[in-house]
Every structure is written in structure tokens, then in C-alpha cells.
């Protein structure tokens, strides 16, 4: 006896198993980032100045320490990748595997571009002696963006698998493969949403 509803939806709930699973996972992720955001608020309302004294220098606003244009560029990159991954799913729904490959490839490239830009940002901080231990602003910045970056890395690994070896399933079980892309997409959109909140709260406020 095989496990039912791995591909088709259960009639009374209307969804297949993996969709319930990924939403539950995202719910727990919401609480994970929620815990970190609440830590951020808790520390910030207790701070006399923000970003404050870092490495012996007083910073009045986050603009003085973080590069807003680069952050904006990275936001655009992630938003674009969100569009491309949903387009890759739509291509599969329209039975166009070649288009799927192109869109998924673009998504992976966007993810990598985001990470490369992020690495340059980190490096710029480190080279000025701005390490997490210097103060809570930097501690929050590195911890939150670092954890988000790890999520991006995870997403890139999963997407690359579905772009490469995992895409063989399209030939044997196209419906299930389409579901998998939908689930991978849901995760990737969530990573995008986290950044949509991270960017203004850390870079702009």
C-alpha cells in the first residue's frame, strides 16, 4: 500500500501532502524570523542611539554605515528571482520544459548574484573593522542577514537540483515534478518576503 495524495489532492482538503508540509515548514520559519525580529525590536528600543557607537565612531543613521543603493539593487534582484521561479512553474503548467529550464536557470543566477553582492557588502564592513562584536547594530545586521543568506544558499541548492539531475522526473512523472517546483517556489518566495521586511528595517530605519 503506497502513501496516498503524494501527487493528487485529497478531495476533502483539496491539497496534496507536500503543500501542507511546506506551508507548515514556512509557518515555523515565520516564527524563527519572528523571534529574531522581536529580539531586534527589544534591543533597539532599549538602545540610547541606533546604530550608535561602533568601532570608536558614532553613527547617527543606518545610512552612514550601510550602503543603501546596493541594498536596493539586491532587493530588486530577489524580487526578479521570485518572478522567474513562478514563471518556471507556469511554464511547466503550460507543458514547456525548455522555458522552465531557462526561468529556473535565471532564478539560480539571481540567487547567486544576491550572494555575491552580499559578500562584497560583508567584506566592506570587515575591512573597516566593523565586526559583529562591535555593537548590537552590527550584531543584528550580521545575524539576520547571515541567517537569511543561509536560506538563500539552501534555496539555490534545491533549485539547482531541480534544474539539473532532479528534472529527469519531468519525463517519468510530470505532475509530481510540477508540484515539486511549486513547493520549491513557495520556499523561495518566503525567502523573498523575509528580505522585503529585512531591507527596510535594517537599511532604511
Amino acid at each position: 500500500m503506497d502513501i496516498p495524495y503524494t501527487v493528487t489532492a485529497r478531495p476533502d482538503t483539496g491539497v496534496y501532502n507536500a503543500k501542507v508540509g511546506i506551508w507548515l515548514f514556512l509557518a515555523s520559519e515565520v516564527m524563527l524570523f519572528g523571534g529574531l525580529f522581536s529580539a531586534y525590536i527589544f534591543l533597539r528600543i532599549g538602545a540610547p542611539a541606533w546604530p550608535g557607537m561602533l568601532g570608536g565612531q558614532l553613527y547617527k543613521t543606518s545610512f552612514d554605515i550601510l550602503n543603501v543603493p546596493i541594498g536596493t539593487f539586491n532587493t530588486m534582484v530577489l524580487i526578479a528571482s521570485s518572478v522567474t521561479i513562478v514563471m518556471s512553474w507556469a511554464s511547466l503548467m503550460m507543458n514547456d520544459f525548455g522555458k522552465y529550464k531557462r526561468y529556473m536557470g535565471l532564478t539560480i543566477l539571481c540567487g547567486l548574484a544576491f550572494l555575491v553582492v552580499k559578500a562584497f557588502e560583508y567584506n566592506a564592513k570587515f575591512s573597516h573593522g566593523l565586526f559583529p562584536a562591535e555593537g548590537n547594530f552590527l550584531a543584528i545586521y550580521f545575524t539576520l542577514t547571515g541567517l537569511h543568506g543561509l536560506h538563500v544558499v539552501g534555496g539555490i541548492i534545491v533549485n539547482s537540483y531541480f534544474w539539473g539531475p532532479g528534472s529527469k522526473m519531468w519525463k517519468t512523472d510530470p505532475k509530481r515534478f510540477t508540484n515539486r517546483i511549486e513547493v520549491a517556489g513557495l520556499y523561495w518566495h518566503f525567502v523573498d518576503i523575509v528580505w522585503i521586511f529585512l531591507f527596510p528595517t535594517i537599511y532604511l530605519l
Binding site: V15, V20, W23, L24, V30, M31, G34, G35, I41, I45
Partner: peptide, 21 residues
């Protein structure tokens, strides 16, 4: 069914923020 799961998540997230702060 998805909404049912998410509503609780949103409520508890709000609880975490509001009560901690």
C-alpha cells in the same frame, strides 16, 4: 486548510511581538 494553519501562526507571531515588547 492552509489558511487555518496560517491564521494560528499570525496570531502567535503577534503574541510574541506584543507581549515581549
Amino acid at each position: 486548510v492552509i489558511f487555518a494553519l496560517l491564521i494560528f501562526t499570525v496570531i502567535f507571531l503577534a503574541v510574541l511581538f506584543v507581549l515581549t515588547i
